[in-house]
Nucleic acid binder design. Structure first.
Lengths: 215, 215
DNA sequence: CGTAGAGGGTTAACGGTGTAAACTCTAGGT
DNA sequence: ACCTAGAGTTTACACCGTTAACCCTCTACG
């Protein structure tokens, strides 16, 4: 590879740089190139060689910083998780009313998926088979997200908050999954559907009526 | 390819076979081998060369019967759709009570996904990117499935049956998606979650209360 | 000063993928 | 007897993730 271009700073001392503003190391550059490639061209185009070309190094160099492609993707997932978590946390912090908070959480979740479809795909949609390998414990942050929902549900007197929160997640994720994969009937207005999903959440978390209408 | 192995019957006359039981043509053999490979080893192992090896021909021969791999997968999807549709149709035909019918439809949908995870993956989970190419009109059968739900919802006096049916689909699909990809918290009992999802469907389809509790 | 070693990088290669182009063989029709 | 159409094969291309071997350039230490 032409070593002239990008002329890597040959000395690692970095001179007397202000702390925190060091030039990004190769690892960071790989990560950001991968992220850009992901949102720009989709997961299908996210190959080691493409990333390397984008970043100006060889494909094999990536393996010096990531164990394999999965590990790289996991790093991307983690980044996405961070952003999602932040969006939800902000709702929780700014909205004391539990009803509006729950609605806000739902909206924020949907908005994240709609605004970052490629990231959502990688985070929650991708290859069951392959992505089962994403370290389970890394999903703790995702679980923390669910707790945001569960807390609001508790305050609203919903049924079995933990379980209800998962069902809400199923509804929201189901919508995003079908929407992002273009499987929803084109005649339906997706925005209206999203609104409706959010408002129906409040019925979804209600405890089942004790006396079924069955005689 | 070694022409000795599997010694393909060199003459196509097939003797005097009973009508309707003709030996499967190569296309059928490819399709069934692909299906077997899919359920046996998962989508990741579904390569043209593997299929060809299984069926005893060359990978390129498959292209004489399918335009490309996507077309082959589409045929598999269609087969899965057929089965799902049949399962749902049977519920509709045997259950006149709309409440039990709706519950039965939900259960049948979930059961199909849980019993045929690899097929469900290919039908509803796979690569948004790539599978957007699955001909939209082929999803008409899927839309017919939704009408099953919508009819029951109508009879139950649910809100906006078409829209409600989609939301029910979102809930069910969301559950299956998260469950099949192993993203649900391992501490939760999936069966209980499925049961709960089905029973909550009846709340999900309720019209929103006209007077919100907001003062 | 010399040298060992480690880290970050490269090239070359392996086995796998989907797919296109060209070729071969066989059956059937005129 | 010849031509044609179809089914199948071989070969090849461009890509993929990944490994092994090698090559620098610094640092540490005797």
């Amino acid at each position: 590879m032409t070593p002239d271009s990008t002329s890597r700073s040959p000395r690692p001392d970095d001179g007397g740089r202000a702390a925190g503003t060091e030039p990004p190391g190769l690892r960071e550059r790989i990560l950001s190139a991968a992220g850009a490639l992901l949102v720009g061209e989709g997961y299908a185009s996210l190959s080691m060689r493409r990333i390397a070309a984008e970043v100006g190094c060889t494909a094999t160099s990536i393996y010096l910083h990531f164990e394999n492609k999965d590990a790289l993707v996991h790093a991307l997932i983690e980044h996405g998780m961070e952003e999602l978590h932040e969006a939800l946390r902000q709702v929780v912090e700014t909205e004391p009313d539990p009803r509006r908070r729950l609605a806000g959480l739902c909206r924020a979740y949907l908005d994240f998926g709609l605004a970052n479809p490629k990231y959502y795909e990688v985070m929650f949609l991708l290859h069951p088979e392959r992505m089962a390998r994403y370290p389970q414990e890394k999903y703790r942050r995702a679980r923390r997200n669910l707790e945001f929902f569960a807390e609001a549900i508790t305050e609203l007197g919903g049924a079995d908050p933990t379980l209800s929160s998962v069902l809400v997640w199923c509804l929201l994720h189901g919508f995003l999954s079908l929407r992002l994969s273009g499987r929803l009937d084109a005649h339906l207005d997706p925005d209206r559907l999203a609104d409706e999903a959010v408002s129906r959440v409040f019925q979804l978390i209600q405890p089942a009526p004790t006396s079924p209408s069955q005689p």
